[in-house]
Amino acid sequence: MNQNQNQTMDEMCKEVQEEVEKLVKCLPKVTQRGSSFEMIKYQDSWYFITGNLFRNVVTFQKHFVAKHTDIIITSLPKTGSTWLKSLLFAVVNRANHPINQSPLLTCHPQELVYSLETDVYSEAFPYPRPHHLNEVKPPRLLSTHVPYTSLPESIKTSECRLLYICRNPLDTLVSSYYFFQEYMKKFQEKKQDFATKRSLGDTFEDFCNGKSLFGPFFEHVLGYWNMSLERPDKVLFLKYEDLKNDPELHLKRLAEFIGMSFSPKEENEGVIKQIVELCCIKTMKEVNKSGVINKFFEKKSYFRKGEVGDWTNHLTPSMVERMNKLMEAKLEGSGLSFKLLS
Rank of each mutant, 00 (worst) to 15 (best):
K156A: 01
K156E: 01
T157Y: 01
T157G: 06
S158W: 06
E159H: 14
C160Y: 01
R161D: 03
R161N: 14
L162Q: 04
L162G: 05
L162C: 08
L163M: 06
L163D: 00
L163I: 09
L163P: 01
Y164Q: 07
C166Q: 05
C166K: 02
N168Q: 03
L170H: 13
L170S: 14
D171A: 05
T172C: 14
T172V: 12
T172F: 05
L173C: 06
L173Q: 11
L173H: 12
S175R: 08
S175I: 01
S176F: 11
S176A: 12
Y178V: 09
Y178F: 15
F179C: 02
F180W: 15
F180E: 11
Q181H: 14
E182K: 11
Y183F: 15
Y183M: 12
Y183N: 11
Y183A: 10
M184V: 13
F187P: 00
F187C: 04
Q188D: 14
Q188C: 13
Q188H: 12
Q188P: 09
E189A: 00
E189S: 02
E189M: 07
E189G: 01
E189K: 07
K190I: 09
K190G: 08
K190V: 02
K191N: 09
K191M: 05
F194A: 02
A195H: 10
A195S: 12
A195W: 09
A195Y: 11
T196P: 10
S199V: 05
L200W: 09
G201S: 12
G201W: 12
G201K: 14
G201P: 08
T203R: 09
T203Y: 13
F204L: 03
F204K: 00
E205S: 05
F207A: 07
F207T: 06
C208L: 12
G210W: 07
K211V: 14
K211M: 13
S212M: 12
S212E: 10
L213P: 05
L213F: 09
G215F: 11
G215H: 08
P216Q: 03
P216T: 03
F217G: 05
F217S: 00
F218L: 08
E219H: 13
E219A: 14
H220L: 10
L222H: 10
